[in-house]
Amino acid sequence: MKQSTSCDALLVSDYMNGNEAALCELITRHKDRIFRFIYSKVYDKDVAEDIFQDTFIKVIRTLKRGAYNEEGKFLPWVMRIAHNLVIDHFRKNNRMPKFENNEDFNIFSVLSDGALNAEKQIIKGQVEEDVRKLIEELPDDQKEVLMMRMYRDMSFKEISEQTGVSINTALGRMRYALINMRKIIDKHNIILTN
């Protein structure tokens, strides 16, 4: 046992000096024991695999940074890292418990993704493009009011101040703009739906 730990120390030192083969030897020597230790806590092979990988990523980063103090205790040190990651795993799972679907109930039947999928995004883009083309067909005074209201989010008071017409005129132009757009849509059987 004494010889094994001193060999570990030698391998760690070799690895820190740039010998990659030393890491391979260290992992080969301890992988089964560390993996079984993790599995004995989490009882899930995939989770154990993830924690095993994260453990050695920490080991590699610490050794490469030269932040490891060799005290002849490589394996206990790695076990401690694995143990801490196991605790992190359970803490994370307590905050956000893992839900597994079964035949009776599927979580996705009550959860929905509000974001548009690729197809709906394309359709939305096309509809918006069609609406812009329709707006281009409007008389200039109506187009101006509609653009200010819908695209620049201005109030009718602001529109009247900027265009120099009364609020009522601005409201009327907006109304006619919408009526005219509906007419064009009906006349040409344009379908604007998403």
Binding site: E20, I27, R36, S40
Partner: peptide
């Protein structure tokens, strides 16, 4: 529990390979 864990349980070969490659790349 550790004694009840199947002795045949070992990490995947690809995980080991990933770690060795990661070490070389870092």
């Amino acid at each position: 529990r550790p004694e009840r864990v199947n002795k045949n349980l070992v990490p995947k070969e690809e995980t080991i390979r990933f770690l060795l490659d990661y070490s070389k790349a870092l």
